[in-house]
Design a protein around this nucleic acid. Structure first.
Lengths: 150, 150
DNA sequence: ATGATGGAGTTCCTTGAGGGAACCCCAAAC
DNA sequence: GTTTGGGGTTCCCTCAAGGAACTCCATCAT
């Protein structure tokens, strides 16, 4: 398919897509998040082609999002999230919020989140890291940053 | 490539990927967000194949994320975000936060966000929609919801 | 009226990525 | 010493992405 390489673009969205933008990658992270950590588990749960699973796992390890580590004396490995990887789950949580709102339909959301801090069933919302107030696309000005392209 | 259909999975991540998970889709939304609304503009700015751009725009319109509307007496059209689409930008903003933190390197972030409410250069963080406190993957329990698969 | 222009796609060919099944390697366990 | 099971490779087939060329249509210029 000779896909365009997003990693060189001066855009954090494109660069993030270079890490998790390929088909299946977000679902692999989701599975590892909820406890499927081994190749066979992932393959069985997702129904993904083994070839593609191998490629995706290698890519995610390369990008520092997953760590491949042995869990037995035998050649057995599990994939665990690094710090980078755990922070990527933020992206998934926002996708869940959007999907729950717009795509869940009559049946309602497939999973619920209970927030430890307040004990309530809830979902994520975006806030300004500086002042804590809501921060969405219409609440900001976009300015060129230091890493902007020439 | 006969890609697997994610839309039928009982997972809001998979369903959201059915909408914006194909290559280029998030970048198309980004471009429309920042003001490139016409076919030629998008094609020129992204360097995407015209064929794929056509497919992606149709798909995003189908899914209710974009609206295609005439802007002239001539057969000229522009693509604008619907409410659904504008809320999808949340996903992009979180991708920016992650990319800025982990992938920007020495040069720093390519773009900056100035938050209207506080006037500061900032970025988004996740908060609980219920109590407003931070809410990340480790701060929640995941429970089956009403739309869970059998 | 005739031709040029420009936006918005469509067509066609080539390459290579995803699906899927079969196969392989290795270290225990029987 | 054969079986088992995890963790991949290999192979072939189909279809999607890249890219260039082509089309259509309404205006603008001559």
């Amino acid at each position: 398919m000779q896909r365009t390489n997003f990693s060189e673009m001066a855009c954090s969205i494109a660069r993030t897509l270079d890490v998790i933008g390929e088909p299946w990658s977000p679902l692999i992270l989701r599975d590892i998040w909820v406890g499927f950590s081994r190749f066979e588990q992932l393959q069985a749960d997702l129904g993904i082609s083994r070839k593609v699973l191998t490629e995706r796992l290698n890519h995610l390890v390369d990008r520092g999002v997953l760590e491949r580590r042995p869990y037995d004396n035998r050649p057995r490995y599990e994939y665990v999230l690094t710090d980078r990887g755990r922070e990527l789950l933020d992206v998934l949580m926002v996708m869940v919020a959007w999907g729950d709102k717009w795509l869940a339909g009559q049946a309602g959301p497939p999973v619920l989140y209970r927030h430890h801090a307040c004990g309530e069933i809830s979902h994520v919302d975006l806030a300004c890291a500086h002042c804590g107030k809501p921060m969405h696309a219409d609440d900001i000005d976009i300015l060129p940053g230091p890493g902007a392209a020439a």
